[in-house]
Simulated scan of single mutants.
Amino acid sequence: MQQQITIAAWAITYVNDREAARRARREFNVALQPSTVGKWRKRLLETGRMQKIKPPGRPRISTEANYAWM
């Protein structure tokens, strides 16, 4: 988790997700896509944390009735 926060902070600093992904490869030996780094950067800027926020409401339930049309 700490690595994710550090990489997201690099993306904010560099204003370039690709550069942050390259630095993560050098520093932590972790291969990341720039899109993943961008997702982490966006999450950190919007919520101030790295954990995913659960969507509101009741969880979806799958039953056989849902698949009756098959």
Rank of each mutant, 00 (worst) to 15 (best):
Q2W: 06
Q2Y: 01
Q3E: 12
Q3K: 15
Q3M: 14
Q4H: 06
Q4A: 07
I5A: 05
I5H: 04
I5L: 14
T6A: 14
T6N: 04
T6L: 13
T6M: 07
I7K: 00
I7Y: 03
I7Q: 02
A8L: 03
A8K: 07
A9K: 13
W10G: 01
W10H: 05
W10L: 11
A11F: 03
A11G: 02
A11D: 07
A11C: 00
I12Q: 04
Y14D: 05
Y14E: 07
Y14K: 00
Y14N: 02
Y14W: 05
V15D: 15
V15T: 11
D17A: 13
D17L: 06
R18K: 12
R18F: 07
R18V: 06
E19M: 15
E19S: 13
A21D: 01
R22I: 05
R23P: 01
R23T: 06
R23V: 11
A24Q: 01
A24I: 04
A24P: 04
R26K: 12
R26D: 09
R26S: 12
E27K: 13
E27I: 14
F28Y: 14
F28M: 11
F28L: 10
N29K: 15
N29E: 14
N29Y: 04
N29Q: 13
N29W: 03
N29P: 00
V30P: 00
V30S: 04
V30L: 15
A31K: 10
L32P: 03
Q33C: 08
P34F: 05
P34C: 03
P34H: 05
S35Y: 07
T36C: 05
T36H: 07
T36G: 06
G38E: 02
K39I: 06
K39H: 04
R41C: 00
K42E: 07
R43I: 01
R43N: 04
L44W: 07
L44V: 01
L45Y: 02
E46T: 12
E46R: 15
E46H: 09
E46A: 14
T47E: 14
G48S: 12
G48V: 13
G48I: 08
R49T: 06
R49G: 08
R49A: 14
M50G: 10
M50E: 02
Q51P: 00
K52D: 08
I53M: 07
I53D: 11
K54G: 06
K54L: 13
P55D: 12
P56A: 13
P56E: 14
P56T: 11
G57P: 05
G57A: 09
G57W: 05
R58M: 08
R58F: 03
R58V: 09
R58W: 06
P59E: 11
R60H: 03
R60Y: 09
I61T: 06
S62K: 15
S62L: 15
T63D: 06
T63E: 10
T63H: 12
T63W: 02
A65M: 10
A65W: 14
A65P: 00
A65Q: 14
N66G: 13
Y67N: 10
A68I: 13
A68R: 15
W69P: 03
M70E: 09
M70A: 10
M70L: 13
